[in-house]
């Protein structure tokens, strides 16, 4: 099974050197981004993000748990991403593969390290009981740029989430929701791909197959950066890193202004 023909990959790379893309976009131009929240009634919070044909769904569920011994007064969050078999012909069911785990971890880090969630407020009883926040991200249709899409879906779902309540007999009432999660700010992950000094944003599936080197940047409202991940088998120069960082931070500002008012 061939994802993208070698010929097409070569053509994509040749065009990028000329600053062109097969779908007539500029190198730093995004496809249309749509963020829809409250898409699943059973979730505490949910979001569906589409970027071009890429579709990602994220949902937040909450449960109670005992805190970690080293942070007895803080709630817990776990973020995971999964490729649904429907998302692409190469996606298979079964235990998560490396790519899925990395996707989940990079998105998790961008949110966690931005300190946008006040985990202390998720404590119910120190050392005994805290809220556990599950963020599940699912790729329903893969047409590239999963890092951006999953990052947006995760933060949008978290912001959409309402806290469930605890009943007198200590069970969770998922019907009776109260108040938002303690979140301030909007961390956004942006993947910047590079090829021979050219920087490309929002790659589609074919472009993603052709271009392998990239940096994924998690950045915050104030322009600070809270996570970085370099992916791909080629090296990147320091100048390229600086350029890509700036591009990512600027882009995240634009997306934040447009989609998270």
């Amino acid at each position: 099974m061939i994802m993208t023909l070698k010929l097409t990959k070569e053509h994509i790379l040749e065009n990028i050197l000329k600053g062109k893309r097969l779908d007539s976009r500029k190198l730093d131009e995004y496809r249309e981004i749509k963020i829809e929240t409250g898409v699943s009634k059973k979730a505490e919070g949910s979001a569906k993000v589409t970027i071009g044909e890429t579709i990602v769904l994220a949902g937040v569920k909450m449960a109670t748990a005992t805190p970690y011994p080293d942070t007895p007064e803080e709630g817990v969050m776990t973020t995971s991403a999964e490729y649904l078999p429907m998302g692409a012909p190469e996606f298979e069911s079964g235990p998560p593969r490396e790519d899925e785990i990395i996707l989940g971890r990079v998105v998790d880090r961008a949110i966690r390290e931005s300190k946008c969630i006040d985990f202390k407020k998720l404590c119910i009883e120190p050392k005994e009981k805290v809220w556990m926040v599950f963020v599940d991200i699912l790729v329903m249709n893969h047409d590239g740029n999963l890092f951006d899409a999953c990052g947006l879906a995760a933060i949008a779902a978290l912001k959409d989430a309402k806290m469930p309540t605890l009943t007198d007999d200590d069970t969770i009432d998922h019907e009776n929701l109260k108040g938002s999660l303690p979140i301030k700010g909007t961390p956004i992950t942006i993947a910047v791909k590079c090829y021979k000094g050219k920087y490309i944003l929002d790659t589609n599936a074919d472009e993603g197959e052709a271009l392998t080197s990239q940096i994924i940047v998690g950045s915050n409202d104030d322009g600070t950066v809270s996570s970085l991940q370099k992916c791909g088998t080629e090296g990147i120069t320091k100048k390229e890193i600086a350029d890509m960082l700036k591009l990512a931070v600027d882009t995240s500002k634009k997306i934040r202004a447009k989609h998270f008012k």
Partner: peptide
Amino acid sequence: RYNMLPFSVSDRKRP
């Protein structure tokens, strides 16, 4: 393959 998404039900379903 029949699969329920983790947040499709009240108590999260483990994937």
